[in-house]
Simulated scan of single mutants.
Amino acid sequence: MNKKIKGKSVIFVLIVSYVCYIFVSQQITMRNIKNQIADKKIEEQKAKEKNRKLQDEVKMSKSDMYIEKLARERLGLIKKGETPVIDTKN
């Protein structure tokens, strides 16, 4: 009878150990998934911010003031009656 009780105890300990192993393994997996979710949320926020800035830039690029500024800076255009100033430092 002592061997039966000992055998049952060993089986019980093995089952409990296996259940504990599965539980810990699942907790580690869940923590890793939560960390990945947090990282993806941060990436999403950065992408949303970049998208908002790009949309603002698109809106601004359609304005006459922005087009005029680009024409003056990149093409060196001037309005009638203005005196051009040339920067020789560059």
Rank of each mutant, 00 (worst) to 15 (best):
M1T: 05
N2F: 12
K3D: 09
K6Q: 14
K6H: 06
K6Y: 13
K6G: 06
G7T: 14
K8G: 07
S9K: 03
V10Y: 13
I11P: 01
F12A: 15
V13L: 11
L14S: 14
I15Y: 05
S17T: 10
Y18M: 12
C20W: 06
Y21F: 03
F23D: 04
V24I: 10
V24G: 03
Q27K: 13
Q27W: 07
I28V: 08
I28F: 04
T29L: 15
T29M: 10
T29Q: 09
M30E: 15
R31I: 08
N32F: 04
N32R: 01
I33E: 00
K34S: 13
K34P: 05
Q36C: 01
Q36P: 03
I37C: 02
I37R: 04
A38L: 14
A38K: 07
K41Y: 01
I42L: 00
A47W: 09
A47K: 14
A47Y: 05
E49V: 07
R52Y: 09
L54R: 07
L54H: 01
K59E: 08
K59C: 08
M60H: 08
S61E: 15
S63R: 12
S63Y: 06
D64G: 13
M65W: 15
Y66G: 00
E68A: 07
L70A: 00
L70P: 01
A71P: 05
A71S: 14
A71Y: 04
R72C: 05
R72D: 05
E73V: 00
E73R: 04
L75N: 00
L77G: 12
L77M: 02
K79E: 02
K80M: 07
P84R: 06
P84W: 04
P84T: 05
D87Y: 04
T88K: 00
T88N: 05
K89E: 06
N90Q: 08
N90F: 02
